[in-house]
Simulated scan of single mutants.
Amino acid sequence: MALRHKSAQKRHRQSLKRRMVNRSRKSTIKTYTKKALETITAGADTSAADIAAAQSKAESLIDKAAKGSTIHKNTAARKKSRLARAIYKAKAAQLA
């Protein structure tokens, strides 16, 4: 189906731009979530401040994506909860 109307062409261009921005944000969230998990699993050489900073950065990106409706707010809450739970589990495993 060819886009014949100017308004349809513009909306299509806009949707492609939004798609690229949204994909970039989602990718960044995944990257920083993995970095936060790697920080805790790196071993005893990482401080609690480093772990908290990594978790804070990941949660901040998740919140910003939810605020801009890149992801749904419930999805953001679920991602943050899973991240916190994984970090808590990793800390407990290190102490045991």
Rank of each mutant, 00 (worst) to 15 (best):
M1D: 09
M1N: 10
M1C: 09
M1G: 15
R4Y: 11
K6T: 08
S7W: 02
S7G: 01
A8H: 11
A8K: 15
K10Q: 07
R11M: 07
H12S: 10
R13V: 01
S15R: 15
S15G: 02
L16R: 09
K17L: 07
K17D: 03
K17S: 06
R18I: 08
R19Y: 08
R19F: 07
R19S: 11
R19W: 05
M20V: 11
M20N: 07
M20D: 11
V21E: 04
V21A: 06
N22P: 01
N22L: 02
R23F: 00
R25M: 10
K26G: 04
S27V: 04
S27G: 08
S27T: 11
S27M: 08
T28G: 02
T28E: 14
T28R: 09
I29P: 00
K30G: 08
K30N: 14
Y32D: 06
K35S: 10
K35I: 10
L37W: 04
T39H: 02
T39C: 12
I40Q: 01
I40L: 04
I40C: 02
T41K: 15
A42K: 15
A42V: 06
G43P: 04
A44H: 11
A44Y: 08
A44Q: 12
D45H: 11
S47C: 06
S47W: 03
A48S: 13
A49P: 00
A49S: 13
A49G: 05
I51S: 05
A53S: 12
A53Y: 05
A54T: 03
Q55G: 05
Q55V: 14
Q55K: 11
K57N: 09
E59W: 01
E59T: 09
E59S: 13
S60H: 12
L61W: 01
L61N: 02
L61E: 02
I62R: 01
D63H: 09
D63F: 05
D63A: 11
A65F: 02
A66L: 07
S69G: 05
S69H: 14
S69C: 04
T70S: 04
T70Y: 01
I71W: 01
H72A: 15
K73I: 11
N74L: 12
N74Y: 08
T75A: 14
T75Y: 08
A76K: 01
A76S: 13
A77Y: 03
R78H: 10
R78F: 05
K79R: 15
K80N: 03
K80A: 06
S81K: 12
S81G: 13
S81F: 09
A84Q: 14
R85W: 03
A86T: 09
I87R: 01
I87S: 03
I87M: 04
I87D: 00
K89H: 12
K89P: 01
A90P: 03
A90Y: 04
K91Q: 15
K91N: 09
A92G: 02
A92N: 07
Q94E: 06
Q94N: 10
L95S: 14
A96P: 02
A96T: 14
